[in-house]
Amino acid sequence: MDDLVAEVLQGSVRAMARLITLIENEDSRALYLMAALYPHTGNAYVLGITGSPGTGKSTLTDKITSVLRDREQTVGVIAVDPSSPFTGGALLGDRIRMQRSSGDAEVFIRSMATRGNLGGLARTTADIVKIMDAFGKDWVIVETVGVGQDEVEIAKTADTTIVVLAPG
């Protein structure tokens, strides 16, 4: 498992994907790996995208990503959707509106379920941001769950937070 950090720092997408799973699962064997990654973080600009359900967060994420890609920036995207409180399962649908980016191997998109956390993010989302940052992404964009009035947890993680509103 120690190799995983080295592989992430060397740019292995597979290693990053697997490390994210371990952290997402709050696997106690993997928590110390975050400490090893930490010195390599702090370089990415973190953009939060939040707003009510269906207002266009994923669409906007896709558009911003393509503008950044035109400027030769690398991008990581974390798209959070709710877990069912009844079954623990989740339907993660944000990728549907990120078609432009999902054909681009330089854009790493990860869908995440909240797994019971309130506030618009999963408990481990901020750690996943750090992993993408350490991997070397210039930008990390976090799309929150469609939120109501007071879910502002993203503002603590992001450098800039965009609130998407439907007109009218």
């Binding site: 877990s83 079954t87 399962g89 339907l91 993660l92 990728r95 549907i96 078609q99 999902s102 379920a113």
Partner: peptide, 16 residues
């Protein structure tokens, strides 16, 4: 199936 799998406790990414 995406919905049924989610209801069975899985995390399902639907790509469209």
């Amino acid at each position: 199936l995406a919905r049924v799998f989610a209801e069975a406790g899985m995390e399902v990414v639907y790509t469209g």
